[in-house]
């Protein structure tokens, strides 16, 4: 290996050329402009839109839940006060006290 490695002093140029040429990228890389997929401003805008949408959906859901519960409780509360309406306790009393004429005659 030594014999092959022994180069004359005038071969320094050749050695340097071989070395540096092997180091330089070949072919030289071409410039490729970066492709803009999504800028930060667009991403921020999209994110804020999503946040607004989800908040709106949450608000609508809560509102529906609240008014729904109000409507339901209002229906059950107003039912006994209806004219001619029978209370639950009245119905029970009617079951206990038979009003059939046969039983009344006895």
């Amino acid at each position: 290996m030594n014999t092959s490695r022994q180069e004359t002093r005038s071969d320094v140029d050749e050695l340097l050329e071989r070395f540096f040429k092997s180091e330089v990228p070949s072919p030289w890389p071409r410039w490729q402009a970066p492709v803009r997929v999504c800028t930060s401003a667009t991403a921020t805008r999209q994110r804020s839109e999503k946040v607004h949408q989800s908040r709106f959906a949450l608000a609508v859901t809560l509102a529906l839940l609240f008014f729904g519960s109000l409507v339901l409780t209002g229906v059950f509360r107003s039912a006994p006060s209806e004219p001619g309406g029978a209370r639950e306790s009245d119905t029970a009393r009617q079951l206990v006290k038979p009003a059939h004429p046969v039983y009344q005659n006895r």
């Binding site: 180069e7 002093r9 005038s10 071969d11 320094v12």
Partner: peptide, 18 residues
């Protein structure tokens, strides 16, 4: 630079002095 390099390479035995 070339001279310095040649001297050092010669000293290390990478190239032979002419």
């Amino acid at each position: 630079a070339r001279q310095r390099l040649a001297e050092r390479l010669t000293a290390q035995g990478v190239v032979s002095a002419s």
